[in-house]
Amino acid sequence: MEQTERRVISVIVMNEASVLSRIAGLFSGRGYNIESLTVAPIPDSKYSRLTIVTSGSVRVIEQITKQLHKLIPVLKVYEHADLVETEMALVKIPMSESLGDIEALTHAYNGRIVNVGSDTMIVTVSDEPSRINHFLEAIKRFHPKEIVRSGSVALER
């Protein structure tokens, strides 16, 4: 087996209705992995930017970028080598857990408590995906009720 690598690919596409299904369909139809996919319009333009985290052999990654390029509404495909990558997570934790400890942990990962209710609080962190992994590991001991991750966004350095 060829070695597989994790890769972050950014795709600039025309902002039109069917474009997300074209891309998702391409990945499922050709058997490529999607670890995460985020999409949002690029401000003041007619484009959107997708950030796709995928994995595969060098050959597969090359095919992914070429096949993406082949889609008519795709303007550019960047396969990032040197990038800044950020992900965010929201975590809901019962109020019965120690507020001070949670706050300290969250701070360590560029985060904060964003909502405090009667039964639960919500914290948010935003960091590199590997650091998010660590955070989510560490937060376990406060018995989180729900976790949501955003998927990565990335920019070339």
Partner: peptide, 14 residues
Amino acid sequence: AVGISRPCTKHNYL
């Protein structure tokens, strides 16, 4: 229809 034809066309339009 465009959902069905997407993987078997070069491009499609609704």
